[in-house]
Design a protein around this nucleic acid. Structure first.
Lengths: 136, 136
DNA sequence: CTGCAAGTTAATGTCAACATGAGGTCAAGC
DNA sequence: GCTTGACCTCATGTTGACATTAACTTGCAG
């Protein structure tokens, strides 16, 4: 398979695959008269990269993970990334809850809505260390 | 409240707040001898920005949302962003499932693990339009 | 043989979201 | 009155992940 076909399968531009290769994420198996030839393994690898990106990993992190051929090393990386994903899920859920509240809020300027302020102020440790109303 | 204090509350660098202001996300209420003075409203606004960013919105999107003072207009934006968040949640869940599988996989090179390949190939529409084993 | 589409490398451009640095202002304390 | 520290503006640098362009080669159709 040549670069164009592989790229099209995943709706990528060919230069993206070259870029990933330059970043050390992809290693083309062979060249036929200077052109990259990809195998089924590469398909799996590209999919892995795409999925990992969708999960918020940087190319650098993905490179590490793909480069970690030792079982133990890889599992440690996965462990870390799994924790990151859960953190992201929590953040997403919080943002979504906020948005859902805003969607129900009919105030014209939502930053004035008392419910909103309660939620948002509870979200971070904002325990009001300005002790009176004089927060000019 | 001055910029340093506000920034410190959210563990931000002051120049980030100035940047957000330059991008039209924040409008300082007043200047006292050239210096920005922030009110409680700004605290709410900063928190809103932070939460929105955590939810994956770009500064541009946030600017739009904060600028949309009409109820209807805002709700439309929120609707869209809510859908985006759900899409992200699905992606995150898929990535997490993949990682969880990888954590259980004891193969030395996980791209060779049949279970993994099944999952990953099912994930995208990869209905194998290379019709035989000759995918060189 | 002649195009022409699709491949190649290498260099450079883009974009968002800051980060950093230069050079200046201002109020408080000694 | 002089230093110190937090603030100011304006300009430029950085980073990550590509996108674009230029100049060239290759494989195949007609």
């Amino acid at each position: 398979m040549q670069i164009g076909e592989l790229a099209e399968r995943f709706d990528l531009a060919p230069h993206v695959l070259r870029h990933w290769e330059a970043m050390g994420l992809l290693t083309p198996a062979a060249r036929v008269s200077g052109r990259r030839r990809y195998t089924r393994d590469h398909v799996v690898r590209v999919l892995t990269i795409i999925r990992a990106k969708a999960g918020g990993m940087s190319l650098e992190q993905i490179r590490e993970m793909l480069g970690a051929y030792g079982l133990a090393e890889r599992q440690a990386l996965l462990q870390r990334h799994h924790a990151e994903l859960e953190e992201r899920q929590r953040e997403l859920a919080a943002s979504k809850a906020l948005i859902e509240h805003l969607m129900r809020c009919t105030a014209d300027d939502f930053t004035q809505c008392p419910d909103y302020r309660r939620i948002v102020e509870g979200a971070v440790g904002l325990h009001d260390h300005g002790q009176d109303g004089c927060l000019v």
